[in-house]
């Protein structure tokens, strides 16, 4: 087990290096940079050149990359061109705000998803199965950013029950108002994981159930809690894998939902950075989100291996 974990960790290093190169190149290809937006069009050329030198944009690409990598290894993500604040501090602040939504959304989405999936599988082909399948398919087919606006119209503007936008607390919700500001974004975010997880769980449970030993047990009238436990255990690796990926999606994909709810998370930060051409912020945000995704995959692999030793090699 330990050697498996170490091997997976080592495999992650070249991936992360590749990711860093890819992120760097992608961001470099964006036309213009924050200076173009910040300085008026009649700004003196020497001022522009000086600012470029300030951020190292005057150096050859490979030097810029190595400099960035060197800073990365020292935990330094650079400084925002737009407001001179350290990217790392801003980003971790924003990531915290994203996690505040992502974790409850994951709990809600995964919880409902597993419940719906297992229930559907156990009622395979019956009305309950059909109904739940429609619910989960709706979850993955809805443009959720649009659904979010519909929710705001109903619950904030018309009924005035919940705030329309913004995070009504500093780091963690401690008041009723704070919690209320989380309700709509969490519901919106949980839709896709709910849909995906319930479909995966349903399929995984059905597959285990179709295996002969379950049928044998079933035939012998030994259908019991332990059989269900066995089914769930065998369906777990696939479920875990999809949950890991979905959690990554919640972090990276929150950009649309955060835009609608004006939530100061990492998605919002990235959107802002793209529109402002704030290269250090863009690089830092994409890299950290991708690195997190790689790490998450790694954790899922190890967890799967723990549950199902066959996966280890």
């Amino acid at each position: 087990m330990l050697s498996f974990t170490i091997r997976r960790l080592l495999q992650a290093i070249p991936i992360l290096l590749g990711v860093s190169i890819l992120v760097f190149l992608m961001v470099q290809m964006i036309p213009g940079n924050a200076l173009d937006l910040m300085l008026p069009s009649d700004a003196p050329k020497d001022l522009i050149e000086k600012m470029k030198a300030e951020y190292g944009f005057d150096k050859p690409l490979w030097q810029q990359y190595l400099r960035w990598l060197w800073m990365l290894l020292h935990g330094d993500l650079g400084v925002s061109i737009f407001d001179s604040t350290p990217v790392a501090a801003t980003l971790f602040d924003a990531l915290g705000n994203t996690f505040v939504l992502a974790i409850p959304a994951a709990v809600l989405g995964f919880g409902l998803g597993i419940f719906f999936g297992v229930t559907a599988a156990l009622n395979n082909g019956k009305a309950a199965d059909k109904a739940l399948s429609m619910v989960s398919i709706t979850g993955v087919s809805l443009p959720h950013y649009w659904f979010a606006i519909v929710l705001v119209v109903i619950f904030s503007v018309e009924l005035n029950w919940l705030p329309a936008q913004g995070m009504q607390f500093d780091t963690l919700p401690s008041t009723v108002e704070g919690l209320k500001s989380m309700v709509l974004p969490v519901i919106t975010l949980s839709l896709i994981p709910m849909g995906v997880v319930s479909r995966v769980v349903r399929a995984a449970v059905l597959e285990v159930m179709s295996q002969e030993f379950v049928n044998t047990l079933n035939a012998k009238g030994l259908w019991s809690r332990s059989v269900l436990g066995h089914i769930l255990k065998n369906a777990a690796p696939a479920t875990l894998a999809v949950m890991g990926l979905q959690f990554g999606y919640l972090l990276g994909g929150s950009i649309l939902v955060e835009t609608v709810f004006n939530w100061p998370g990492s998605g919002n930060l990235l959107n802002l950075a793209i529109f402002r051409r704030d290269i250090p912020v863009m690089q830092g945000t994409i890299l950290v989100l991708a690195a997190f995704f790689v790490l998450l995959n790694l954790v899922v692999d190890v967890a799967q291996a723990l549950i199902d030793p066959r996966i280890r090699r």
Partner: peptide
């Protein structure tokens, strides 16, 4: 409060935020 989306500003005003 920064609110770049016009729809969001509208919702915030109409819901009393």
């Amino acid at each position: 409060l920064p609110m770049p989306e016009a729809t969001t500003r509208l919702a915030a005003l109409r819901s009393g935020q």
